[in-house]
């Protein structure tokens, strides 16, 4: 099995604040890993380090075997950032145009071909929003919008899907459908890294959990995660784990 992401002894700080401290972890091909931790724990920073959006102060990060600074197969990654999902600036963009972007890394400056169009249509079908193709993306519901971004990642034929809290502001049933889709994609072989702070989701859907609060407090099977002390260590003694209110 190939190692998709290899994080080794990584340290990273913003100015004077240390966000990620001595973290090492490996993500193998086909894994479905959830990154969990309290606010400000460095989850997003770690994800950005993994994708090459940030370079570590110390340590190395390798993507598909290449150091992220020199990574050349960007089209293998699909990324749904937190900001993709709650962009409050209403930019006129149809769903089709958003999904199209998944092909840009493949086509460069050349025009999209009919083979690209077919891939785009297939991606739209796969996430079940083909009938919304001509609609403005900012007029869609949260759940539909998320699926459009997944379609974009699918259109780019990504081997690795990285999502940062993708279901903020999405209603419960859409969330279920969304995570069902992710599980299907994972079964088809796509490696998934997911930042999510809803523990239910984490323990029900992902197979590996990485609990982080600056350092890695736990990295292993999600089934054993709740039994470990990692939660208390990471979140602190008085943290209640029952309900996260996303209001």
């Amino acid at each position: 099995m190939t190692t998709v992401v290899d994080v080794e002894d990584v340290w990273f700080g913003y100015d004077t604040e240390l966000a990620v401290k001595n973290v090492s972890l490996r993500i193998e091909e086909g894994q479905y890993i959830g990154l969990i931790g309290p606010n400000g724990s460095g989850k997003t920073t770690l994800l950005k380090l993994m994708l090459g959006l940030l370079q570590p102060d110390r340590g190395t990060v390798q993507l598909f075997g290449e150091p992220t600074a020199k990574f050349s197969s960007a089209k293998r990654i699909g990324y749904v950032s937190q900001r993709s999902t709650d962009k409050d600036v209403a930019m006129p963009m149809t769903v089709a145009e958003v999904v199209e972007m998944g092909r840009y890394a493949h086509r460069g400056r050349r025009r999209l071909r009919s083979s690209d169009r077919r891939i785009i249509d297939d991606a739209l079908e796969r996430v079940d929003i083909a009938d919304l193709a001509g609609h403005r993306i900012d007029r869609l519901s949260g759940g539909q919008r998320q699926r459009a971004f997944i379609a974009r990642a699918l259109a780019s034929e990504a081997d690795l899907l990285a999502l940062d809290e993708p279901t903020v502001g999405v209603d419960a049933s859409s969330r279920e459908a969304f995570y069902g889709l992710l599980s299907e994609l994972n079964e088809e072989g796509i490696t998934i890294v997911l930042i999510e702070h809803d523990l239910d989701i984490i323990t029900t859907h992902v197979d590996t959990v990485a609990c982080i609060n600056q350092t890695l407090h736990y990295h292993g099977e999600s089934a054993r995660f709740l039994e470990s002390d990692a939660l208390t260590e990471a979140y602190g003694k008085h943290h209640g784990i029952l309900h996260h209110d996303h209001s």
């Binding site: 960007a74 990654i77 993709s84 972007m101 840009y104 400056r109 974009r152």
Partner: peptide, 22 residues
């Protein structure tokens, strides 16, 4: 015209564009 797709991608989702190698 030549760089239209790139400009659109960067305008819409700068981080994803960066990840995609633009």
């Amino acid at each position: 015209v030549v760089h239209f797709k790139q400009f659109v991608f960067i305008t819409f989702d700068e981080e994803a564009a960066r990840v995609a190698g633009l």
